[in-house]
Write a protein that binds this DNA or RNA. Sequence first.
DNA 1: AATGAATGAGATTTCATTCAT
DNA 2: CATGAATGAAATCTCATTCAT
Lengths: 224, 224, 224, 224
Amino acid sequence: MAPERMSASHPEHRRQRRIAQRRRQILAAAAQLFADQGYTNTSTKEIALRTDMGESTLYGYFSSKRDILLAIARETEPLLLSALQQAGPLDNRTAMIELFERALNISEAQLPFARALVTEAWVDDDILHEFLAGRLLLIHRALAAIIAECVAAGVFRPIDPALSAQLLMGMFAGLILPAMRGLAPLPSPEQRHTLAETIVSQLLDGVLNRSANEASQAGAWLGS
Amino acid sequence: MAPERMSASHPEHRRQRRIAQRRRQILAAAAQLFADQGYTNTSTKEIALRTDMGESTLYGYFSSKRDILLAIARETEPLLLSALQQAGPLDNRTAMIELFERALNISEAQLPFARALVTEAWVDDDILHEFLAGRLLLIHRALAAIIAECVAAGVFRPIDPALSAQLLMGMFAGLILPAMRGLAPLPSPEQRHTLAETIVSQLLDGVLNRSANEASQAGAWLGS
Amino acid sequence: MAPERMSASHPEHRRQRRIAQRRRQILAAAAQLFADQGYTNTSTKEIALRTDMGESTLYGYFSSKRDILLAIARETEPLLLSALQQAGPLDNRTAMIELFERALNISEAQLPFARALVTEAWVDDDILHEFLAGRLLLIHRALAAIIAECVAAGVFRPIDPALSAQLLMGMFAGLILPAMRGLAPLPSPEQRHTLAETIVSQLLDGVLNRSANEASQAGAWLGS
Amino acid sequence: MAPERMSASHPEHRRQRRIAQRRRQILAAAAQLFADQGYTNTSTKEIALRTDMGESTLYGYFSSKRDILLAIARETEPLLLSALQQAGPLDNRTAMIELFERALNISEAQLPFARALVTEAWVDDDILHEFLAGRLLLIHRALAAIIAECVAAGVFRPIDPALSAQLLMGMFAGLILPAMRGLAPLPSPEQRHTLAETIVSQLLDGVLNRSANEASQAGAWLGS
DNA sequence: AATGAATGAGATTTCATTCAT
DNA sequence: CATGAATGAAATCTCATTCAT
């Protein structure tokens, strides 16, 4: 009889859903603005405008402008870590390629959140340490551990695992940062597999043409 | 002898030197602050405080706060390009190592300038395009050209020069960005050679242990 | 009855009326200050003080200090023109007197607006041309046209209509400017009729005593 | 023998002359700027620039910016009064025309001083009362006295001398103010005589065509 | 006497946040 | 819950004036 019975249309539920959606709207708009202009250059008025609310309404959903930033930062949590967490044992080339491919899977919708996070972490120590540095460190450690294993197993040359992990993460950054900044488009889903293959191939095999050991000039490159 | 002969004590020279030094003081203080907090979060008052001047005195040296930022950006010009410009023909491993070693030669004094540039370029399109994007593009093109040559000469495998150049720059970024952000110390002069060697070695040779072709598990890594 | 019916107490109406009144308060206070001290010598702080608001509240009503000035200038529109526009055909002495009487009808409330306009127009070319020069030109043209007609009809002596119009406007200015500047009180409503009569009489008849043509010294005045 | 003998080249005299000239330069430049932009809108820097001096040098000649304004105001003293003072008895039309012609004799060089004075007097009570109101009052009184005499002598109709003097001064203002403000050019020396004649003729005779008393419509204009 | 440099005081404007409705 | 209005605090920048040289 009363509409309260059907949970979907239970007024209390409807209210909560509406609230949650408003929150998401605010976060999406703010993330876009923070990403484009930076946190400080974005006014609450702009956020309100984009969300089509009054400025003061924001304060019903977040307690301060900074609170919005923190919520955005929290939303980025799965971005970096999920790829690693889903990864099985990285004991062959294919598994590694898959890992990188997954890591490249940033959607258009996530991009502003990621960029907003990086933007502020670059300048704000709290954001950096609470939301970015720890995650990067996890990734770095995981990669270094894998590399160390491979070295121990004799699969990799005796290289410094930490340094190699850092270079590897740099290669990844070299692909993703320009896209974040809008200097290059996000790689399309099709490109991602090729990119992942290239990274892994270059990482594992280097760029030298190993079969060309007869070439006169090759010596200068192979030597040392 | 007339005192005018000794240029150092000529009053006009002294004045000009004092002015130039004040300018440098302002730039150094501002660069540090912009690097730490970002341009927008830094007030002219803070800059004045650090330079021990009245706030309005700044405007005798620069016409606006933004003018200070632009001057800082201009100062970073040699940072990225000089290494490339000084480079001779990169036709062997040693030359390449030297290039990277020089590229890593960022002094403590330059670091805040570089970081301030990156900070603002990340958010401000004008700064990005006028002071950073162009220079990075130059570097990218130079690297890609070298790689293309090596591929043509059969020294490198048939890889995509543009992509490889991008990954290479990423590796470099992976070393320098954490230092800029204060997450890692700047590599000491001694470390720089080793780092450069490692980058080049990893780039050219990859990480795989080529002599371990007998290992049972190596197949999974070597294969396609 | 529902309260919505009485527009006066409808909350939305109340709000709008309050806003409109605040605007008028600001304009009145600013006009007074601009008139007394000039635009540049008046600070937004003073305006806020007189209106009993915070300084920043002003910016909810006007987008800049200059915007206040422009609004004041706009308010003066009817001041000069309405008298002319209401005028019927000026084909006799009485009609002309009435015109001048209406032109002298500046209320105490309008005075600061008029003075503020003149003050700034005297120094600011934009204000002069956008809000004053055009209106004065209209008046001048209208007067000159009337005079030209009268000359053509043989009612007036063959005088230069443009110059006469200018002198006429000057006579008017001679009455109104001292009042604006506070050197003389505004003519009271009763005085206005007399003043208008005097202006018109002096304009039309001159000051000479025409019946005194027998006086010995009159020759020197009458002779061309 | 010694150069001190010839007063013109006496070093002390030279110095004083140089100083006096610098003062005049400053006043001329400042008057121009004050006239164009108003006192408050003109910075000491601008004055210094136009005079080709350092900003602080001004303070060797004047003790403050306001002191410059006062000096300018003082310079305008002869402007208004000299014409009246030189006037003989105004007992005939020609003498009156001559008076007005002399009053119109404002040179290009004096114009900025006059305009600067009016500009500031319009806003600054001290300037108004010390340098303008008194002089205008003198003129007004002199004119009113003359008019009163003429009335007493039966030469003029029985008009209010004070009011007529005010209207007369207004007619004069109607000619001179537009030129000051740059809305009209200064009347050339040739035009001045004609203008003076017109003013006086209009003042004395009015504009009505007295010989046209037969015209049908004239009644409406002539009748009191 | 002349001036470049320095500066305190103050002007305009923005903005995150609060509050009454 | 939503919001327009209000505001204190702060930011950038200007300027008349002083001072050391």
